[in-house]
Nucleic acid binder design. Structure first.
Lengths: 233, 233
DNA sequence: AAAACCAATCTGGTTAACCAATTTTTTCTG
DNA sequence: CAGAAAAAATTGGTTAACCAGATTGGTTTT
């Protein structure tokens, strides 16, 4: 086989192509939950791609819970049934790259929840972490320095305090994508930062006093500018 | 080097170990955004692990937006700054496996949003997809068959209609994990399924009439049993 | 006849060798 | 000496070879 280095897009297309072929294979062979897929070598030969590519696609399907690999044994169809499998496969293949609006919409949704949960569940250690991040943010802003990182860390500290590992993971996933878009669209400015100090302080105080309503309300205020901006792109 | 096959847990530990070492390296060498990391070969030698392990760790850090690989050139620190980088690294290293409660909590949060957005934004094509899934669900339940898959597909159809690729992606991530836990804890039963038909119908009707308030309310009702169950584990 | 055992085979996991694009260094030329 | 051209070294991407554990089918033993 000819060696060829792929661009990110070509790579993704090949990837999706293999995933679609695996789906068709499962359907054609009527493989049911628990059944074993042909070996990676057989698949790579049948699809006329390298074994590495097959492995990568299988790993993605494992990430989404559709397949399960067992070492030295084989790759198996997970227990989610044919109908669900096909539905999820279509979803996975149709996944678009996230746009800025959907990112912001999701971030606001998540953070309005994390701040409420954090107000309920925060420990003393969480408070210290948040306060540290808040002080670092203040110092940067008052020195007229860029404080995007410290802003971010304060929000991540809240997410950690909400004691929900799934939400926490999702915040981690969207955070870098948000940052990249922020830089691309130049969302931040100095005036915002000064207002931000008070807003961050209000949020922190509400969490400290375990006032869930107030915490959510203050977070809403904090996101107001971003919300407006996002919906006027 | 001795060959050794790792269990999933050992694999994860090695992985986190390498990530921590990369973080320390960036800090010690004071690498700033845009700077180049040592090559994969150098890292694998320095950390005394295989190059494949290093590659895998780098790919994870790329997923979270901390590093960027450029083919035939090198791996670079992303533009998020040292403070943010350290904060996110700690978060990534501290990520726990998702527990059932956090999954359900997150699913309810996401779906109360998707149903509202779907009611606003659904197209005719979305309606058809949802109705198809709904009819399949009805048929299964009325025939006294297991309908977990069809249930799931209806909810995924709503998620697609919400026109938010990020939320959609997150629904896809947690869905298989939810299913696995459902099976483990035997959440579903027959009585729920019969009630489920009416609840699904109510949700669908509200989305069709674009009644956002009603849609959210009906989804809340639909999740009530799950919510109670989850908080009493 | 059933159970225990063993070796050949098959599997996913792992490593090492190889490739092509890029970057750096050297050499050549004006 | 400066600049261009060429060659050597470096890099991430890719493929192929190898490994250890699991499976399987046949054989032996009880």
């Amino acid at each position: 086989m000819k060696l060829q280095i792929l661009t990110k897009n070509e790579h993704k297309e090949l990837h999706n192509d293999i995933i679609a072929k695996i789906r068709d294979l499962i359907n054609n062979k009527n493989l049911e939950p628990g059944d074993k897929l042909p070996s990676e070598r057989m698949l790579s030969e049948r699809f006329n791609v390298s074994r590495g590519n097959v492995r990568e696609s299988i790993q993605k399907l494992e990430f989404y819970g559709i397949l399960k690999s067992k070492p030295q044994s084989g790759t198996f169809v997970a227990d989610i049934g044919q109908v669900a499998m096909n539905g999820m496969m279509d979803d996975i293949l149709g996944l678009e790259d996230p746009d800025f609006k959907s990112l912001v919409e999701t971030r606001i949704l998540l953070e309005l929840k994390t701040v409420r949960l954090a107000a309920q569940r925060r420990t003393d250690a969480d408070l210290i972490k948040m306060e540290t991040a808040l002080e670092a943010y203040k110092e940067k802003v008052l020195n007229n320095e860029d404080a995007v990182q410290e802003d971010l860390l304060f929000h991540l500290a809240i997410a950690q305090a909400c004691r929900n590992s799934t939400i926490n993971r999702m915040m981690l996933i969207i955070t870098p994508e948000i940052i990249n878009n922020f830089e691309k669209y130049h969302v931040c400015d100095k005036d915002q930062s000064l207002k931000g100090i008070q807003e961050h302080q209000d949020i922190f105080d509400a969490i400290k006093r375990q006032n869930t309503q107030k915490a959510k309300q203050m977070m809403k205020v904090h996101f107001n500018a971003l919300y407006q901006y996002c919906y006027n792109i």
